[in-house]
Amino acid sequence: MNVIVEFKDVTKSYGDIPAVEEVSFELQKGEILGFLGPNGAGKTTAMKLITGYMPAEKGTVFVNGSDIREDPLLARKSIGYLPENNPLYTDMTVEEYLNFIAQMRGVKNIRKAKDSAMEKCGIKSVGHRIIGHLSKGYRQRVGLAQAILHDPEILILDEPVNGLDPKQITEIRNLIKELGTEKTVILCSHILSEVEAVADRVLIIDRGRIVADDTIENLKEREKGNSIFVLEFLEEEKNVAEVLKGLEKISKIDQISNTTFKITAAGEKETGHQLFKTASKNKWKVSQIYLESNSLENMFLTLTETEKEEGDR
C-alpha cells in the first residue's frame, strides 16, 4: 500500500486560538478514514488544509507524495471535496452547476462524467431543477456529485449527512460505502455511529490534537473503551453480583432492579461472550443481554473529556 495523504506536524491557528496542533497522520490508498471529534475540534480546519483552501502555519501536508504548497493545483486535481454545510449555487439547475464544475475542472468528456456522477448519486431525475428548490437530501447528493465529477482519487466529505432525516442518512451512507470501494475517503463527523458505519480506521481529534488513531476493531477492545451491558433475568437470581465480580475486565456492576443489572466492562466481544458463558454455566434464567452503549462511543467521550479536564487545569 502507498501513502496518499500525509500530515506532518501540521499546525494552524486562527489568531491566538489553535485549531489544529502538530497533527501528524498518514492515509493509505483505498482506505476509508473516519475523522471524528466534537464540534470545534479542528476537523474542518484539517480538511481545509488538505484541500488547499488554507495554508498550514507550520508543518507540511503531502498529497500523492508532493507538498501541496509547492503545487497546490496538482493536489486539488486529485481531490474531490464536499465542504461542511454543502455550499451550492442555489439559483442554478443541477445540470448547469455540474457543467460549471466540470468545465472549471477541465473534465475531458463532460457529458459522460456528468451522467456517471448523476447516476451514482441518484439525481438523474432532477437534472433540470433549480438547486434551491430541491430537498436537503437531494442537495446533499448534488454536493456529492460535484465532489466525484472528475473521478478523484481522494474524496473528502465534511459532515455529509448533517441535518438529513434517517432515511436520507441511510441512503447517503450506502452511497459513501459504494464510493469507498474505489476511492480513498476521508469522512468527517462528530457522530460516532456514522463513522463506525463506513470507516475502516478512525482518527479521533480533540482540541486540535489527535487522541486516537486505530482501526475500529482495535479501538473497541482498548482498555479505555468501556462498554455497558444490560443483563435482565426472568426472576430474581441469587449471587449474580458475586459471580460476575470474579470475571475479568468487568469494572463495575450496578443492580438497577431485582432482575436487572448494568455491567461496565472494558472491551466488547470478549465480555459479551463471557457473560453468555457465565449465565449458562450458572443456569440463570436470562431474558435478555444487550449492549447498552458501545465501547467506541464511551471511549470517544472519555478521550475527549479527559482532554478537556487537562485543558481546564
Partner: peptide
C-alpha cells in the same frame, strides 16, 4: 456568505 467560495477555491484554478 453561502460558502461556495470553498468550492471555488478548492478547484484547480488560479
Amino acid at each position: 456568505k453561502s460558502g461556495t467560495m470553498e468550492v471555488l477555491f478548492t478547484m484547480p484554478v488560479r
